[in-house]
Design a binder for these strands. Structure first.
Lengths: 152, 152
DNA sequence: CCCAACATGTAGCTAATGCTACATTTTGGC
DNA sequence: GCCAAAATGTAGCATTAGCTACATGTTGGG
């Protein structure tokens, strides 16, 4: 569409940039939610229950912080819980958990493939995973599939 | 110390995971700061001055939000400004700007190299860049250097 | 040179995420 | 079966980042 891309008026460039920042901002807001959902799913799978104290310990925050955020998850239809009875995921929560977990694994595997050490890959993935678009995720998968494997 | 790494007690695994989350949390907290510093540096370079209204427009937020965050940058020794006189970066702010800009370019170039479209690379980089460790950044650079270039 | 338009700044609200201090509920050991 | 310890929950505080409404400063056109 555009031979004139580099003479785009400043106002238009600003709009683009503002949109990019707005998108990063909303991903940032969703990142914690994804972390909680992922951890709850893990605990349900490994222990059969997800208790606020365990969730808090995994995140490294006070249990009250976890309780407050769990209330938000409930309000947003991702989890349900009755007092003193542990936390469970709704269908929407489970769907998010599946998506988030798959993405996490892809990002870790990708980083390792390009030569990042496993421990560092885990740390960086924890931050990066929330900001990777479908398109970039596909590129990661394509790359993993095409790369030679060193051991396993 | 550890042949028994995979029988690491649950408490220890939790500590590791908590540390990873804590690290992601603090990177999250620094992300906005880096965005501001990067934008201020851009504006100083292109326009010779960085005015709160322009910064706000680039970020897509109200000017009051920008003013409040600029006050935080000042408090943290990254910027200085006198009322109605625009914003400038301290030495620390300039150093951060250089680092952030270089990292941003590396991330964008890397994403494009693995086949992500330019517009999407820009969007994803805006989120990803704040969470990339030195080690991962090096891996990106190594990869870019070793990859065949398609045009340029 | 003055006043209207625009930029800048202040005040005060909401919401999210962290915390500590304290209260209540469960539960397991004796 | 009771009681103490552990888990859970409530209340209230701080900080950050967003907003709107309003007040003040700057500046350029007539």
């Amino acid at each position: 569409m555009n031979l004139r891309e580099d003479v785009a008026p400043a106002a238009e460039r600003d709009l683009d940039e503002a949109a990019r920042h707005a998108s990063a901002r909303s991903a940032r807001a969703g990142a914690l939610t994804e972390d909680y959902v992922e951890i709850i799913a893990d605990l349900l799978e490994s222990d059969g229950e997800a208790r606020p104290t365990d969730i808090a310990r995994r995140l490294g925050v006070a249990h009250t912080t976890a309780i407050k955020t769990i209330a938000r998850l409930k309000r947003d239809g991702l989890a349900h819980a009755k007092p003193y009875r542990g936390v469970f995921l709704t269908e929407a929560g489970q769907a998010m958990a599946r998506r988030v977990r798959a993405r996490h694994q892809t990002v870790v595997a990708f980083l390792r493939t390009i030569g990042v050490r496993p421990e560092v890959a885990e740390i960086d993935a924890e931050g990066i995973e929330h900001y990777v678009s479908e398109e970039t995720l596909s590129a990661f998968e394509r790359f993993i599939a095409s790369a030679p494997r060193d051991s396993d």
